[in-house]
């Protein structure tokens, strides 16, 4: 299997948390994993994008037109990085409920206003990363890991907050079905 995922957001949104969760998923199934993260200067609220390559790869960076999936934790950060996604890939993005979102040519697509949901108290803002992961899980039929595998990894990451995170994941998967 070869699968490449870009996660885009800004500093403080917990992009690296998602990288770690997916790395644990790969480790549990003994599939090769190579990813790259942003630390340091780029963390101070600036644009952050992390690359995750699952399967037989030798460098951690995703080039343009290569990613199978992009999870965008914020609308503009998604658009900024959209050229890394293959045309037959899937874009999952947090974006405002407005009509001005551009029409994009990707095969798979899901858009949801996660900020609005967090503001309405449906989940805490710190869980927006996990919420969008749930949207991706429910949208991308080729997603390399099962819901159970992701939940197990979330529990391994931090057992203390696992219950809340798993609830957010389930919440997201219900929301996307209702869309």
């Amino acid at each position: 299997m070869k699968y490449q995922i870009v996660i885009a957001g800004f500093g403080g949104q917990g992009v690296v948390f998602l990288v770690k969760v997916l790395a644990i998923c790969a480790g549990n199934r003994d599939i090769a994993f190579l990813g790259t993260e942003n630390h340091g200067m780029s963390q101070r609220g600036g644009s952050v994008s992390c690359d995750i390559k699952i399967g037989d790869f030798t460098n951690p960076v995703i080039d343009k037109n290569q990613a199978d999936l992009m999870i965008a934790l914020e609308q503009n950060e998604g658009l900024r990085n959209v050229s890394y996604l293959k045309l037959d890939g899937t874009l999952v993005t947090n974006a405002k409920d407005k009509d001005d979102y551009p029409k994009l040519p990707f095969k798979g697509f899901a858009k949801i206003d996660a900020f609005k949901k967090a503001e309405a108290g449906e989940f805490p803002i710190q869980g927006l990363n996990v919420y969008m992961l749930g949207i991706a899980l429910a949208t991308d039929k080729n997603f390399p890991f099962s819901v159970k595998e992701v939940k197990d990894a979330i529990t391994q990451m931090n057992a203390k907050v696992a219950k809340q995170n798993i609830e957010i994941l389930d919440h997201a998967m219900r929301d996307i079905k209702e869309l």
């Binding site: 780029s42 609220g45 600036g46 644009s47 343009k64 658009l79 900024r80 959209v82 040519p105």
Partner: peptide, 22 residues
């Protein structure tokens, strides 16, 4: 060049440089 996407996907999005934290 297989590492190129259609120019229509190059969005001119406002830069988000790192900033002093709130």
């Amino acid at each position: 060049n297989i590492y190129k996407t259609p120019p229509s996907l190059n969005f001119d999005v406002e830069a988000r440089p790192p900033a002093l934290c709130p």
